[in-house]
Amino acid sequence: MALYRDRGIVLRTYKLGEADRIVSIITEERGKVRAVAKGVRKTKSRFGGRLEPTGHLALQLYEGRELDIVTQVESIQAYRHIREDLDRLSKAIVLLEAVDHLAHEGSPAPHLYRMLAGALAELDRSDSAMLVPAFLLKLLAAEGFGPDLDVCVVGGKADADLDLVALDIDRNGAVCIEHRRGVPVSTEAFAVMRAVMGGGLKDVLDVAEGPVTHEVDALVGRMYEHHVERRLRSAHVLDRA
């Protein structure tokens, strides 16, 4: 039982009792932490609006038996453009949900914290149609589910000019015209996904919203849900909205 400091991003919150909340935070050093924020729902709470999802914070917490207790909070980034734009907020919530799926309590995951902080900062700067699919693809790669996009995963041929025409989600990679199965994928979508995986993220984020970004978005969503075995609920709810 001790006080500790860490940096983190609030993933989600749950109401607790009259005026408290349980906040779930991805921290830099301790993985996912669940902590009680006392009185945070009162208008005069000293935590104010900081402990809301997307809040990027420097925290002081008191280690508890089951749940820690938030004792001090300072904002690192308020991400105001995200909070005040429905499209950006919808995207940010998908990022938070994905990280919430993959982070675990008591298991440090500094890469998840850094990836999320980077993605939120980028989303605050500009609203790119490719941000969510690129983030999910990078997340899959970081968790060991990165798809093989350069060879036919059935035939094994690795030819740059080979006609890769589809994606076999089970085998997690591209397939050529001869071994065609799974989801058909356009050449442009393959190119965008290869760029994400191969260090071309900056250019990919400039791709304007259109059929290719929609195709990659749907494809990566399916890959994510297949490999992580969790449904990205926020993506579906906000599609309907």
Partner: peptide, 16 residues
């Protein structure tokens, strides 16, 4: 800002 509150405790978003 809430009436009766202290400015120093206001979060950046609210104060902004």
């Amino acid at each position: 800002l809430p009436v009766g509150g202290d400015l120093e405790y206001a979060d950046e978003l609210t104060l902004g």
